[in-house]
Structure formats: structure tokens, C-alpha cells
Simulated assay, not measured.
Amino acid sequence: MHVILCDSAAEVAVAAADLVTRRVRRGPAVLGLATGGTPQPTYRELIRRHREKRLSFARATAFTLDEYVGLIPTDPRSYRATILRDFAAHVDLPLERLHTPQGGAPDPAAEAQRYEELIAAAGGVDLQILGIGTNGHIGFNEPGSSLSSRTTVRALTRQTRTDNSRFFGRDPVPRLCITQGLGTISRAQEVVLLAVGRGKARAVRDMVEGPVSARCPASVLQFHPRTTVLLEQEAASQLEYLDDYREAARLLHERD
């Protein structure tokens, strides 16, 4: 796990966009796209590079992490609508190669299996963008999730529903979701996790420096050989080994 400390949320976004840009320019890429507030500045930076620097996603394929059970793709609160609004509709990613779980599917368990097989048929994810929940979840893998799980139907905790209630106004947040499992996420060739704000500091600490445990689902990334964690100062504020991470980043930068 490579921890990079950034001075601001804007710096996190640029660093993440640099990693995505590098992978996309190498050739056809399968991207894993997270939704939510944290990756939005990264998507805005990638859109800017598409418009101003001719960064092309024409040869990319993309898979989102998850979707609420019961929301059809045209529902503005669905993650299909969200990723279109935040990113895909503003670049040249072919929309037939933008894949999301179908939250309105009559059999969510069968849909989860279909989605897992679709990812495998694409050759797996090359670069996965992640955020982290205040309880340590990635995707919608809540505490207690199996560290080897595949795409499945999960119940959302009260904390997650509270955190996401701002997107639903007076309507209740759905209680079920379809999400890529921790095992599915762990099979990505490269993972880039972004965390911003003091509210994520405890989860970041548990992910980076705590034991690998289902109590903090994101801690499974300690086993991943190519995970980059991009943190601004408040999100990093509870880490014990900050000086070590800064020194390691400096030495690696000098080597490059």
C-alpha cells in the first residue's frame, strides 16, 4: 500500500487524475468508477483534460462499483445517472461500454451474478477508483463483509443510509444495494483510493495501520500489491506513521 499525503483536496484530485491519465494513455483500459462526493473533483479534472488536452476515453470500458436496489437507470439518484452526470456524459467514453448494475432488475441476486461475469468477460478492471465510507466500507461492502466476497446483494447499514440521505431529500434511502464484493475489487490490477476530510480519518487509520479485518472492509487493500492511497491532511490526521509515509514518498519521487 503506497500512501501519498497531499496538501489539499484539489491536490488529491490532480494526483488521482494523473494515475488515470497514465493508464488510459497506455492503451485500451478497463476502469472501475466510484460515485459519491469524493471522486467528483477527480472527474472534473479528467473532463478538463479531455477538453483541453485531448485525453481520450474512446478505447476505455468502465464499470461502476454499485447500485441501489429498486432504482432504475433513469432515476436521477441512481448511480448510473450519477456517473453520467459527473463524468461519462462529458467525455468520449462509449456509453455502450459504461456498465452499471441494474438496480431495477426483478432478481437482484441474478443481476449481481451477471455483473460479476460481465467484469470477468472484460478481462477484469485495470484501474479501480475508490472512496471510503466513514465506517470503512468500500463499494457498499459494510463492516462484516467477507474479505473474499464477489458481486452480491447487500443491506446498507444505518450509518451509510444516514451518510447518503443528503442525496434523497425527504425520501428514504434504499436499504439494499448490488455491489462489487471485496474479492472482486481486490482483483483489479491497480487501485486508487481517495479520502478527504476529518470525517474519514478514523476509517483511514483503520484501513492503513489497523489489522486486516471485516470490521474495516477497506483494510483488505493491505493485501493488494498495487494500491495507492491519496489523502489530504485532515483525512490523514489520525495516522501514526505520517513522517514515514512522507519520507517514502520523497524517496520514490527522487527515484522516478
Results as ranks from 00 to 15, higher is better:
Asp243Leu: 05
Ala16Glu: 09
Ala155Asp: 11
Arg226Ala: 14
Ser146Gly: 15
Thr42Arg: 02
His224Gln: 11
Ala9Val: 10
Pro225Asn: 00
Asp7His: 12
Ile47Ser: 04
Val173Arg: 00
Ala203Leu: 15
Pro73Ser: 01
Gly210Ala: 13
Ala155Pro: 00
His253Ala: 01
Arg49Ala: 03
Arg215Pro: 01
Cys6His: 08
Val153Glu: 03
Ala248Gln: 05
Arg187Ile: 07
Gly124Trp: 00
Ile83Pro: 10
Ala58Phe: 11
Pro76Tyr: 07
Thr162Lys: 13
Pro217Ser: 03
Ser165Thr: 06
His50Asp: 06
Val12Lys: 05
Asp206Ala: 15
Asp92Pro: 02
Arg175Tyr: 11
Leu65Gln: 02
Val69Arg: 07
Leu33Trp: 01
Thr61Gln: 07
Leu239Thr: 05
Arg22Trp: 00
Tyr241Cys: 13
Gln233Tyr: 05
Arg85Gln: 14
Arg150Ile: 03
Leu65Phe: 04
His50Leu: 09
Gln40His: 08
Tyr245Val: 00
Gln238Gly: 04
Pro143Met: 10
Arg170Glu: 09
Pro101Glu: 05
Ala29Val: 11
Arg22Pro: 01
Leu55Cys: 13
Leu231Pro: 04
Pro73Gln: 10
Ala248Asp: 10
Arg23Asn: 08
Leu242Asp: 00
Ile47Trp: 02
Glu67Lys: 05
Arg48Ile: 09
Pro211Asp: 15
Arg150Trp: 07
Cys177Ser: 15
Thr64Lys: 00
Leu251Ile: 01
Val3Asn: 00
Ser146Phe: 10
Thr38Arg: 09
Met207Arg: 07
Asp7Met: 11
Arg85Ala: 14
Thr134Gln: 13
His90Lys: 03
Ser146Pro: 09
Met1Pro: 00
Ala235Lys: 01
Ser146Ala: 15
Glu142Phe: 03
Ser8Gln: 01
